[in-house]
C-alpha cells in the first residue's frame, strides 16, 4: 500500500511538532517570568515543580517527534505499510511503558529503539546498501542526513537516560560531532564531495 504524498505530509507533521515544541518553550518563558517573584525562588520546591511540569509538557511532543523521525527514516528499510505498523507498535509500547513506569522510562524505550534504527541506517548508508532508499541524492547528502538524525537521537537519549552517567559528557560530544558533521554534509554535499574520494 502506498499513501499519496506520504513524505509531504510527514514533513508537515514534523513542522507542526517542532512548532508545538516552540510553543511549549514560549509558555515556559512566560511561566518562569510569572513564578520568579523573588531572586531566591529557584531554591524553592516550586522551581523543581516547574522543571517537572515543563518536562512533562515537552516529552509527549518529543515522543511524537521521534515517531515522525521513525516514520521518516526506516522507510528506507521497509515498505510504507510495514513502516506505519512498526511505528504504531512502537508508539503503543511507549504509551504502555509510560502508563506503568512513567514518562522518562517510556521516552527512554523509544529513544533506545530509535538509536538502534538510526545506527542501522547509518551503517547501511556508509556501506552504500541498496536496501535503503533516500529522498536525497548523492552519497554525501545521504551520509549527512543519517549522521544528523543519529546524532540528534543520541543527544536526546543522553539527556533523558544518561544524565548521571560518567560518560554523559563524552556521549554528548559524540552527538555534537555527529550533528555538526551531519549538518555540513547535508547542506554542502557538493563541496564536501570534493574532499571525499569515494563519491
Amino acid at each position: 500500500m502506498k499513501l499519496k504524498n506520504y513524505d509531504f505530509y510527514l514533513i508537515i507533521l514534523t513542522t507542526l511538532i517542532l512548532f508545538a515544541i516552540g510553543a511549549v518553550s514560549l509558555y515556559g518563558i512566560t511561566y518562569y517570568n510569572y513564578l520568579a517573584v523573588d531572586s531566591r525562588w529557584t531554591m524553592t520546591a516550586q522551581y523543581s515543580q516547574y522543571i517537572d511540569e515543563m518536562n512533562s509538557y515537552l516529552y509527549p511532543f518529543l515522543v511524537l517527534l521521534l515517531i515522525s523521525l521513525g516514520l521518516c527514516i526506516p522507510k528506507r528499510l521497509f515498505e510504507q505499510d510495514i513502516l506505519i505498523k512498526f511505528s504504531a507498535a512502537i508508539l503503543g509500547i511507549t504509551v504502555m511503558i509510560t502508563v506503568f513506569s512513567g514518562l522518562e522510562k517510556g521516552l527512554g524505550f523509544i529513544l533506545a529503539i530509535m538509536t538502534v534504527v538510526q545506527a542501522i541506517v547509518l551503517i547501511l548508508t556508509i556501506r552504500k546498501s541498496k536496501s535503503i532508499r533516500f529522498e536525497k541524492e548523492g552519497y554525501i547528502a545521504r551520509m549527512g542526513s543519517s549522521l544528523l538524525h543519529f546524532g540528534f537521537v543520541i543527544i536526546i537519549l543522553n539527556f533523558v537516560s544518561f544524565r548521571d552517567s560518567p560518560f554523559h559528557l563524552l556521549i554528548f560530544w559524540i552527538g555534537v560531532v555527529l550533528i555538526t558533521v551531519g549538518n555540513v554534509f547535508s547542506f554542502y554535499p557538493e563541496k564536501m564531495a570534493l574532499m571525499w574520494p569515494r563519491e
Partner: peptide, 25 residues
Amino acid sequence: SAWWWDPKISGSIMMWVLYSAYLHS
C-alpha cells in the same frame, strides 16, 4: 545552579525548533 528551563534556554530552544521547522517546510 538553576539553569534548566531558564528563559534564555527556553527561548533558544524555541528559536532552534522554529528554524528546524523552517528548513523542513
